[in-house]
Design a protein around this nucleic acid. Sequence first.
RNA 1: GGCCUUGUGGUCAAGCGGUUAAGACGGCGCCCUCUCACGGCGCAAUCCCGGGUUCGAUUCCCGGCAAGGUCACCA
Length: 544
Amino acid sequence: MDYNALAERLLPGEYPALETFEKRYPPRDLPKNAEVTRLAPSPTGFIHLGNLFVAIANERIAHRSGGKLYLRIEDTDLKRRVDGAVEAVIEALKYFDIRFDEGAGIGGDDTYAPWYQRQRAEIYRAYVKDLLRRGRAYPCFCTEEELAALREQQVANKEVTGYYGKYAKWRDAPEAEVNAALDAGKPYVIRLKSMGDAARKFTFHDEIKGDVTVQENDQDVVILKSDGIPTYHFAHAVDDHLMRTTLVIRGEEWLASLPIHLELFDVLGFRRPKYGHNCSLMKMDGQSRRKLSKRKDPELSLSYYRQEGYHPFAVKVYMLTLLNSDFEEWHMKFPDKPLEEFPFRIGKMSRSGALFDLDKLNDISRTELSRLSAEEMLAFLKEWAQAFGTEEQKGYFADEAYLLKVLTLCMGIGGKKRRKDFVTAKQALAEIGYFFGDAAQRDAYRVDEETRNAVLDGFLATYSYENDAQVWFSKVKELAASIGFAAEMRDYKANTEAYKGSVSDVAEVLRIAVTGRANTPDLWTIMQILGEERTRARILSARA
RNA sequence: GGCCUUGUGGUCAAGCGGUUAAGACGGCGCCCUCUCACGGCGCAAUCCCGGGUUCGAUUCCCGGCAAGGUCACCA
């Protein structure tokens, strides 16, 4: 077999010498232990929590080490392409504070561009041609049907499936046969001529999983598809070498193809990067758990959390608690320290997949939201409302001074007495709805109409906006006593039979009348914020 | 099915030869209290199973079992 002739026939013309790529994409000038990491999504435009999970790990490790994080777009599969996807990805990640140093759509240093694999076709072909010349790659003319039949046969024989060894039909095909196929214009792919032996195993050190035993690759994998575009495996090797990636952190679903990648790096004469395969986020699906999937779990897309009004900081904190087991403790100890100061370590990453826990996220959200200043909270709510809120909710921001009063005086935002009422912006705006217009929610009264009217009328008779909280409440107590309810909870508990109810029942009537809800923060404060007129009007209209 | 990985309360997990087996979320109860939330206190709940090694195994070894991943001209 004349490899040079074959290479020339398959990929005719002049290709740059491989050394020119080494010169064009020189090693990076970075501090000693700096890591260069990347995110390499395919442009489907859809990213979910699992992607963010890996993204945060990559970002933290790159930037903690003084290295770089870049964005590369793996658009080798046309079927996956969606317009505007790259912008969507950048936007979504930026929302969660993931900053790229360079890459597709980022600007910054373009030394290692282009960042789209389709635009790098000539580079890959140059390397493929070299492999062809060296006899380490060859064309394969098998049709899909042939491959499927081979597979079927292997399954029937209980053999390992795939294109390898004696099943690699075109691996050592005679020159004449290859040329005949070419003359006939048969479509073909280029495959790697693997030198590996699956029977040989070796230990590989994974930065996250530790030592793993793997077997050598013996599959003659496709490296150049029939459309002349490389497969993921080949593009990964070429790009991560030329872009000078030092550490590849990716989902553990890639672990199985690691031997392929290793062989590719070796045959191309590239220095292998370090790898860290991180566990995927799992989700409960019926009785079993499985990894998050973009097809099955649209509700886990990043845009979902944004729409629901989760604060990006809270989501990030949750991701970090799953990513590094000692993060949670650190963050509780230093709640005000910027997240960047946390000594994130790849070695602390979990080896097994964590189940996504909405309760935990909600708890973190509540806590983080309670730490916001009133101004921050207002800005956060406003931004969300403008994008996703109802018209009515957008109206809440017409009088920001009033909203600020609601937030600080009533909900305790920015104060020392923390309440944790808010989980999301969406829920927060619904929560404070009764300060605006009429209360949408109407909890049922638990007392009869006669008692209800007595409470309402009695309250109105002595109510004064000028009264402070103590005086106000003592009046409520007096009212309670006057209609046969216990003024003191203590008395009521001591002798339930002696009363129709307690002061809390009386307060509840007032609360529902004014807010529509049985449970709210301090009622006196609410009345103060609403003002005398509205308070009276609401109580009046609540009479049966 | 082959190969790889992982198995500590419901969830996330610390621990890595001797511990009353941390902590957080969730659950339950109590206290605080005009309701809710906050806060405080407390309770229930765990080392997948079986063999070894050892004076002693959650920790080490072997074997099961279970779960997850992967076996494309998709990434």
